[in-house]
Design a protein around this nucleic acid. Structure first.
Lengths: 227, 227
DNA sequence: CGCCCCGTTGAGGGAGCTCAAAACGAGTGG
DNA sequence: CCACTCGTTTTGAGCTCCCTCAACGGGGCG
């Protein structure tokens, strides 16, 4: 079942979006795209939906969620402008995707893209590279979840967000403390305390709850790698 | 730098190995393979080595490891007969791979396989599928590491091992309790206590430390999904 | 202005970690 | 066949980090 969302069928917008993604390499793909706008908290798809589409984030932010039977939640990844989402080994999505804030994505028909990939080796290799990069991200996240302390997790998260979306040392965190906690295997309270701790240590500055500045990148990197 | 290991350049052995892997679909790949034998604890490659090869496990078992600066260890995945290992987004491996027990693998030149994949769409799609499946495994593991209790982690692990390598309900665990702990984000002692707990509850039977039998698969599945 | 959601802070408790010792099992040599 | 060794696993006891529960504060929006 496809989730309801504002859809505008139109040519690919000439957004200032980067990198990392097939649309940029291969003009042919652009024509397959449909622009979709999501309001805050609106689902892009749900766990178990048929995986008929790939998506690329244009603006805003998405999170992927998995729930345990008793309600415990895990946030797999945050997707920022330029990020590609929708690869799956099965015919269904195995997690939900929701908008953290108002978000615009481009939607591609999976069947069309997969068919095109057989004719355009460059597209095929790009999709393969995206899968390998996602795997690398997941492998780092597993080390974090398996072995790092709360403060180290937050340090890693801040550095990651800085690399992906920061303007210099200023970082915008569109998601809530609860989202961050569910992503890092912590509670909201522990996330809050770890931010406070890093602030006390002079490593970061809290401009507001969703805007932070890195003060000591080396200290942050040391914490993130645990030595 | 390539790790030293017993290498036998020869045609692909007619092993009774499954499934899941390119070698089986595409005869051409078999000729590219070189058989490599590893003794217990011997590294197949180290973190940071140039990623010049893909591998397929024939017999035995591998583990992938990442270390934090202060020595904390994380075991990413165990690889059993039929499993494919070596996909990476970069030119280097980002984790080490070591033999849990005496292990035989087939080694493929990454360059040759990648080149062949451009000519043989089926091979390209197979590699892509392997990457997507690995991603799916990683996503499940992140939920486990982020949100499950010790007992739930062990239940999930036992079920996973039963599906992958079990003969009926009898399971062989070639790795140590420490390996299991480092894979599940626990200590060896907690792993041992969780096994004892499941035994006390009549869910599993411990034939020996490395051989267990599932007594109540439904109870195990309930625990693994937490509800 | 007042409500509500989100974030912060505090106090107490618990799941899993640490440290330590004993039990076990596989391999080795007499 | 037994004695000994060495690494692994089990079990116990105490501690710690993070979770839980609760109260308070602040910013955005009706």
């Amino acid at each position: 079942m496809q989730t309801i969302a504002a859809v505008r069928t139109s040519p690919f917008p000439s957004s200032g979006v980067d990198s990392r993604l097939p649309g940029d390499d291969l003009g042919t793909l652009d024509r397959l795209g449909t622009v979709v706008t999501l309001r805050r908290e609106q689902p892009l798809f749900r766990e178990g939906d048929r995986a008929d589409f790939y998506f690329k984030v244009i603006s805003g932010a998405l999170r992927t969620c998995k729930l345990l039977a008793d309600g415990r939640r895990h946030v797999g990844e945050f997707f920022l402008p330029g990020d590609f989402i929708g690869l799956t080994a099965t015919s269904d999505y195995i997690f939900a995707a929701e908008a953290v804030s108002e978000t615009v994505v481009v939607r591609y028909s999976r069947r069309s893209v997969d068919a095109l990939a057989l004719q355009e080796p460059r597209l095929g290799r790009r999709l393969f590279a995206i899968a390998c990069e996602s795997l690398s991200v997941a492998q780092h996240q597993m080390v974090l979840l398996g072995r790092k302390t709360a403060e180290e997790r937050i340090a890693s998260f801040v550095l990651d967000m800085a690399e992906r979306g920061g303007d210099g040392d200023g970082i915008t965190l569109p998601m809530t403390r609860t989202d961050i906690g569910d992503h890092l295997g912590l509670t909201m309270e522990t996330v809050s305390r770890a931010f406070a701790q890093l602030k006390r240590e002079g490593v970061i500055e809290l401009k507001s709850t969703h805007n932070i500045v890195i003060r000591d990148r080396d200290a942050l990197a040391d914490l993130a790698d645990a030595g």
